[in-house]
Design a protein around this nucleic acid. Structure first.
Length: 417
RNA sequence: GGAGGCUUCGCCUAGUCUGGUCUAUGGCGCCGCACUGCUAAUGCGGUUUGGGUCUUAAAGCCCAUCCCGGGUUCGAAUCCCGGAGCCUCCGCCA
């Protein structure tokens, strides 16, 4: 959620942000008035409550008629206090609702507009020259690495088995990612993948993404769509004693997504699936350092893509496509020869203090004051990377060259049928 | 699954039976100051968090906060109900 103080001081900044996203400007005025209403109701309640406490103090000393009069007075006051409290509660609920309706303030420099208004920052690597590229599914099946049919038999569409060399390849990619993260000082984490509603809500995934999330009603738990959820919740409600250096975590987990509303989209192979594995970078840092930390996460993502020897491009995602928590987002898209297009394989978001405000993650600054931390996340390695890895490194005979960095994990330099 | 115990301002802890003087005790830690010819000891002071109000700002004042949510009451850390977490024992499973 956005900072109400900032909103009061500079509502035009928020309006401008809404404009770049193509989102509602009137929501800003709704929030402003909800804020004013809440403060009025709080003041009214507190005045009554102060009187009640004042009179309550006289009670033990009073006796006889005086006491009877006091009780009569405070009895009436008691009802007024309860009513005022109820008003405050309603005002607070209205405020929260209005506050949740406004997404994070877009970082300066992010392109305005919608999904197609991204800006390509750079293209890296050389696309392979393939006469008739096979797609990852053909290659994967040919290698005995991927079994979609049995995935569907056992669990339904968008489920799959990674078998033999496919399993090794995926583990290799993930381990390569985790190893790199550890080298750069990340704390590796294997988090729970089932989380409580408050954790899911705190990270913002029960808003516009609610239909994407698996819910287990018997236990009222949610399956995470990314370990970002658990890593963001890790320090929820805490005051971090020092944040001079960013606190960096690398979460390794399975991820679950319902992919509701994507029927007919990316139905072939493992591009879009209900369950996959991912190593996710997550960083808590001081807000003023968030922008540079964001670039660092992006650089680490690119470093991994380079190790996988993939051609890719980096895009600066347009404001309208950021999602509610991000102020800025960069995607790395790997080249997919069979489709002749780039495919998103990693994504890094700077959530500034938006997510931390909801999760109540703070740190003590140099003056000893508590401030909300900034949170950032970025994909390091994921199942989806199997697609460009198989396709870009394929050879005419259907074998696949293993990138050097993966060879120690996979145990061979060429995968053949 | 059953029974019991616990949860207090960073940590430990008093207070809960017997509701008001709890504006929550003490210790440890931490911060500041004083003193001593150095970082030790001692003394004094400060030290939950959030919100409101006022202010250029600070201070001040007010409200909330004793795991969470309800209730009883003029008044709840304290009594009642529900829930969560932790611990112990029993059962079950491994």
């Amino acid at each position: 959620m956005i900072d109400l103080r900032l909103l009061r001081e500079d509502p035009d900044l928020v309006r401008a942000s809404q404009r770049t996203r193509g989102a509602s400007e009137s929501a800003v005025d709704t929030l402003l008035s909800a804020d004013a209403t809440r403060r009025e109701s709080v003041a009214a309640f507190e005045a009554l409550r102060a009187e009640q406490k004042q009179l309550g103090k006289q009670m033990p000393k009073a006796s006889g008629d005086e006491r009877a009069a006091l009780i009569a007075r405070t009895k009436a006051l008691s009802d007024e206090v309860k009513a005022a409290e109820e008003t405050v509660r309603a005002a607070e609920a209205a405020l929260t609702e209005a506050q949740l309706a406004i997404p994070n303030i877009v970082q300066e420099g992010a392109p305005a507009g919608g999904e197609d208004d991204y800006v390509v920052l750079r293209e890296v690597g050389t696309k392979p020259d393939l006469a008739e590229p096979k797609d990852h599914l053909q290659l994967g099946e040919g290698l005995g690495a991927l079994d979609m049919e049995r995935g569907a038999k056992v669990s339904g569409s968008r489920f799959y088995f990674l078998t033999g060399i496919g399993a090794m390849l995926q583990l290799g990619i993930l381990q390569l990612g985790l190893q790199q993260a550890v080298e750069y000082g990340f704390t590796p984490v294997i988090p729970p993948v089932l989380v409580k509603p408050e954790t899911m809500r705190g990270t913002g995934f029960l808003g516009e993404h609610a239909s994407e999330v698996y819910h287990l009603p018997a236990d009222d738990l949610y399956l995470v769509g990314t370990s970002e959820v658990a890593l963001a919740g890790f320090h929820a409600g805490e005051i971090l004693s020092s944040l001079d250096e960013p606190m960096r975590y690398a979460g390794w987990s399975s991820c679950f997504r319902r992919e509701a509303g994507s029927y007919g989209k990316d139905t072939r192979g493992i591009v879009r699936v209900h369950q996959f594995d991912k190593v996710e970078m997550f960083s808590y840092c001081r807000p003023e350092l968030a922008a540079e930390e964001h670039l660092r996460l992006l650089a680490w993502e690119e470093e991994l893509l380079a190790k996988l020897e993939l051609p890719y491009r980096v895009i600066d995602v347009a404001a309208g496509d950021l999602g509610s928590s991000a102020a800025r987002k960069f995607d790395c898209e790997a080249w997919v020869p069979s489709q002749g297009r780039y495919l998103e394989v990693t994504s890094t978001s700077n959530c500034t203090t938006f997510q931390a405000r909801r999760l109540n993650v703070r740190y003590r600054d140099a003056d000893g004051k508590n401030q909300f931390a900034a949170t950032l996340n970025g994909t390091l390695a994921t199942t989806r990377m199997l697609v460009p890895v198989l396709e870009n490194h394929q050879q005419p005979d259907g074998s696949v060259r293993v990138p050097k960095a993966l060879q120690p994990f996979v145990g061979r330099d060429v995968l053949s049928p």
